[in-house]
Design a protein around this nucleic acid. Structure first.
Lengths: 159, 159
DNA sequence: CTAACTGCAAAAGCTTTGCTTTTCA
DNA sequence: TGAAAAGCAAAGCTTTTGCAGTTAG
């Protein structure tokens, strides 16, 4: 097992710099777009490779949140996130990391628990605003009716 | 907004039945393989469409865990999971759902929080066993050395 | 100098979709 | 009988990979 050595290429440096200016928890494509403004010839593959290496080095964090995308965070401390179910915006959750969360499982499972992830889901302020507008509109034009929906509860099914 | 009506086709019924017999939190492909034994002519697209519909109906749950795969669960109550970082096995976490988790954010964010997901990461019993065997072997043949690794902490970097 | 890295393009893995035919109610 | 669903195959989206040329140290 040989010690892996890494070089600080222009690409790697700019990727790190750009990511540190973003607080949006961007996916690779979004990082690519940002970096491309500085290094027009960079390729998406390079961005992926570097994000991977930087996260192995602990310089950034790879976030496995819900949704279809891998996201990246220049903030390296463990913390939780809130994701908008409508627009996919991700913010940090204003809540401390719970170091003792895993102790609840100690003795209750044969798994060796080493980490945990907590993600809150809901509507961001912008989407909530829109939702309210729509609802108000519906209610004033027509009686209640379709105002509910969206409950994650079991719908009436015909079988 | 017209009320959506669904039919109970042979395919949909067998998908639901098979999923109810699995406790492995399978992905679509795995459900497909199981159902195929009963209905050899079913297509993967049909499995995807039905898993989607069944989860909209609340008959099953779609699980957005880490990893690259969408997983499905016939258990419809909210609960948490533990995932093996080595083999990707997923078990239910032996721990009750914390209804009050979201209250910690009340007043602290402008998001309207509606749900949350908690996932534990670690080694399943099988992979832990293997890891121990390997470690023992290494330590007896060669001195410590590469025994550590794996810490999610920042590695020494050369820049 | 040379191992690490880049750009490019092709491929891979999972999921969705368009279209024609079949089937449930 | 007609709306919903199936089968099949193509496309879509994100991520990974092979390779030939480039570069940091």
């Amino acid at each position: 097992m040989k010690e892996q050595t890494h070089r600080m290429t222009r690409q790697r440096r700019v990727i790190l710099e750009e990511l540190r200016e973003m607080d949006t928890h961007p996916g690779a494509e979004e990082v690519f777009e940002a970096v491309r403004r500085k290094l027009p010839r960079i390729s998406l593959g390079t961005v992926y490779r570097n994000l991977e290496i930087l996260s192995e080095l602990g310089e950034i964090q790879k976030l496995e949140l819900g949704g279809t995308l891998m996201r990246f965070d220049s903030k390296t401390e463990k913390h939780y996130h809130m994701r908008c179910i409508n627009c996919d915006r991700v913010d940090d959750a204003p809540m401390g990391f719970m170091e003792n969360m895993e102790t609840a499982l100690r003795g209750a499972t044969e798994f060796k628990i080493m980490d945990h992830r907590l993600e809150f889901l809901g509507l961001c302020p912008v989407c909530m605003e829109k939702a309210l507008d729509r609802k108000t509109l519906e209610e004033s034009s027509r009686g209640a009716a379709a105002a509910s929906a969206q409950t994650p509860t079991k719908k009436a099914s015909n079988f």
